[in-house]
Amino acid sequence: MSDFLFNPLLVKEMRDRFRSRKTMLILAVYLFVMGGIPMGFLLMDPLKAESLGDNRDLFLISAGIHYAMVCFVAPALTAGAISGERERQTLHILLTTQLSTRTIILSKLITSLAFSTLLLVASMPLYSIVMLYGSVSPEQMAQLVLFLAVNMFFLGSLGLFCSTWIKRTSISTVTTYGIAFFFVVGTGLLFFFIGESLQQTYPEQYVNSNVWSMYELQMLAGTNPIIVLSDILGESFDQSDDITFAPWLFFSCVYVVLSFVLVIWSAYLLKPIRRKWWSWKKRPVRVQ
């Protein structure tokens, strides 16, 4: 474990990521946006003693902006991680060292996650403004933080996978955002379209909107970040009211598993020589 934590790639990446002026600039802009918008709303609608405990708008706005920033920043941090090495012509040399592809992928992912986590943690004090209004439970805050962390992990892994799979950084970045768009918006649209279609096609079978209680549709709803975020914020859609499990827990489990699959797949794709398990013996052969 200590070998991994002090592997030269991780150390170099951490140093590059955290010891540059660009890093401070990104952090400053991020906090400015994250703090500026709620502050703007506060200026428009000043805090009043009588509204304490009732006004949830600021919480919704802050969480929405936070999620949007995560969707914007997390893929960008990893979508060029491997393709950038390839374009700089340093990847081949790196692959001839004793660093395994798994170490290379994890080092890149951990570095970007560390930076994403810094952004997340640095912006958490902004929620103290939200807490002034009350009407937000600590449990909701914890679920929101977990939700954002899972999204960072998934979007970071997705970016890393696209970066390994696609040679050019520009195409990898566009593909990452495209796939992320599918997960953020596409799964929600699929949920609504499929439900509505079933209801209209088989009106006698799905009376009184009971199509939304179908387990398959509930699972689809549980994979859509916007529906899950709405549920965490206590603003669920009518169609997703019938979900019988905790959406945030289901969402976290699905996306964490998906992220691990993407990381393992990336490490496999990065291997110059991919082992075909059915054709080779495991023991190395030495000839004289």
């Binding site: 170099k12 590059d16 700089r88 012509q89 340093t90 081949h92 040399i93 001839t96 060292t97 004793q98 110059p272 020589i273 080779w280 013996k281 190395p284 052969v285 030495r286 000839v287 004289q288």
Partner: peptide, 27 residues
Amino acid sequence: GYNVRKDPASVRQSVGYMPDFFGVYDN
């Protein structure tokens, strides 16, 4: 003596490779 396909890690330890064009880390 190591098979490049079956035992790449041992081969890498035995080889120093310099490609025709290679990049450097600028910082």
